[in-house]
Design a protein around this nucleic acid. Structure first.
Lengths: 159, 159
DNA sequence: GTTAAATACGATCTTTTTTGTCGTATTTGA
DNA sequence: TCAAATACGACAAAAAAGATCGTATTTAAC
């Protein structure tokens, strides 16, 4: 669950759109659909999930809509991804505890450790990347370019 | 194409297995299938592709098989992934030139830049990570004592 | 109060992607 | 000549992703 899929796209599109608005101003899904061509139902579902998790705040009824409910500088890309797609797992053998035994080759697999390490590195990177940063800080603030955790696969193995 | 899928798994499993062998010693797909439970046909095709690209060297005929054909320290994970899955693309709008216009939302999309930035970072990371490193360098830490018995199939499994 | 516009959400259908299998040809050592 | 291996195109099955439908609920405006 690593690739940016439609859910994640719709989330980012919506968040970027809403971030440009005045505080308290709402955005309807219809607005997103007509502005970006995203499918109404699918995008709607994504916003609902984000609202459940507090990333967005929803107002029901006529003139309802969504607005940003959390400081995006304190929302990591990892967290956003987890909300929509579940834990960041670069392969089957990683997954949530539910899928833990998903791979039938466990036990005879000789690459469990490498895969786990790679997954950990990706995770660290995603966790250190805020959604605000990803979307591009609109103000004049200096943007910190987060780097992938560099090399040292062996060195950090026991960290 | 970012996630480790079966193709990449079979490739890594095979490479790790072959790396433990003496120079010139061949590994048949049948051997991989019985040792790790990987499906013969699927794994076979992966090895064929790797052989076409010079990562492996194939010997046909009876007693044939594959052996490593390139220094894995100079083969990046990015390159391996590209051979099997095409260019590393974290979203549709990135892809190979063929898929370039794959996303119908281009033109109205407000997150092209963020997605490209993220893709670039991932790419850099994958490009700086060698397959040797990923599989765990069997050097300093795990230096093998002078020539243990060679048929160490089971010994390789590290799960 | 009725209506219109919006979110809420379960269920299902469709499409796409991934994965595995089959059939056949070719190579090569014994 | 046979057996064991790679080579490879074509197809089938399975899984995942994505979109849509139906209905309920909320709320502002009239």
């Amino acid at each position: 669950m690593n690739k940016i899929n439609r859910k994640l796209e719709y989330a980012l599109i919506g968040l970027k759109h809403m971030r440009a608005k005045a505080p308290g101003e709402l955005t309807s899904v219809k607005e997103l659909a007509s502005a970006y061509g995203v499918p109404f139902d699918a995008a709607s579902r994504v916003m609902q999930v984000l609202a459940q998790k507090g990333v967005l705040i929803s107002e029901q009824g006529a003139h309802g809509g969504y607005m940003i409910g959390r400081d995006l500088a304190r929302l990591s890309y990892a967290e956003l991804s987890e909300i929509l797609l579940g834990k960041v797992a670069i392969a089957r053998c990683i997954g949530d505890s539910a899928d833990e035994g998903a791979c039938e080759m466990r036990g005879s697999c000789n690459i469990v450790t490498p895969v786990q390490m790679l997954n950990r590195k990706i995770n660290e990177f995603y966790r250190g990347l805020s959604v605000a940063e990803l979307l591009g800080v609109p103000s004049s603030k200096k943007k910190r370019e987060p780097e992938m955790p560099q090399q040292n696969f062996e060195a950090e193995a026991e960290a």
